[in-house]
């Protein structure tokens, strides 16, 4: 992996995405070009259906672009195979999703442990417990997701996302399923830990107040990306 001070953490080069639809081919993304440097917090804004989530999926290597490519810390994601991309995610990337995606059969602490376990870390439980303490859930360690409120679930998801100390965090509408007050507390937490760990943050949202807390805002409109004011 190349020197982080030299190259961007995320670099999109001419990313385009077309999908087949009943009304013919649909162009979701068109020639997306940008780079994000280490430590930046970038918001991707846009209306519903503007392709924000599609872009996030491609940036994280969860989806493939029709044209162009994405470099993570200088590594061309789409020159790698599926296994290679999984390794990059394991190595460098954390996720927070709109619908939390906690595993229903795992307790809070086990959910937070999962990425550490996948990375083969022996201190997984201690790490996870410490992080859950950090998000204020030290009394909810043995609770199952169904026993937690939405805000609590998202805090577990944040603990999980930061568990492996990723250099890059993707957050997809992290407050989309939460009420205003809860959403605000969750966002506070996200930014706090982001700062503590020096993580680069890419956040998809349609909430201007959330976007306002980012260092940079990009607007996705008609499949094209431009800097938002």
């Amino acid at each position: 992996m190349s020197d982080q001070s030299q190259c961007p953490v995320v670099e999109a080069r001419g990313v385009g995405k077309r999908v087949a639809s009943p009304e013919g081919e649909l162009e979701l993304l068109r020639d997306i070009q940008f780079s994000i440097m280490s430590g930046e917090a970038v918001a991707v804004l846009g209306a519903s259906g503007s392709g924000k989530t599609t872009l996030l999926g491609i940036l994280a290597g969860l989806d493939t672009p029709s044209t162009g490519t994405v470099l993570i810390e200088g590594v061309d994601l789409f020159a790698l195979d599926e296994e290679g991309r999984a390794a990059v995610r394991r190595e460098a990337i954390g996720f927070v999703f709109q619908s939390f995606h906690l595993l229903p059969t795992l307790t809070a602490v086990e959910n937070a442990m999962l990425p550490l376990e996948l990375a083969g870390r022996a201190d997984a439980r201690a790490q996870a417990e410490q992080l859950l303490g950090r998000v204020g859930l030290e009394r909810r360690l043995r609770h199952y997701p169904r026993q937690l409120s939405g805000g609590e679930q998202q805090r577990v998801a944040i603990a999980r996302a930061f568990a492996t100390r990723p250099r890059l965090l993707f957050a997809d509408e992290p407050t989309g399923n939460l009420d205003l007050a809860t959403g605000r507390r969750v966002i506070d937490l996200l930014f706090e830990i982001n700062r503590e760990q020096g993580t680069t943050l890419v956040l998809v949202t349609h909430d201007d107040t959330v976007a306002a807390r980012c260092t940079r805002r990009l607007l996705l409109d008609g499949g094209r990306l431009r800097d938002a004011a």
Binding site: A60, L62, E82, E83, A86, A87, V88, R89, R90, E91, I93, F95, H101, L103, T105, L114, P115, L118, A119
Partner: peptide, 16 residues
């Protein structure tokens, strides 16, 4: 299925 998707997302290989 979701379990697997999350694990894939967290970087688990197909073989794993």
């Amino acid at each position: 299925l979701d379990y697997c998707a999350v694990m894939r997302c967290l970087g688990a290989s197909q073989r794993l």
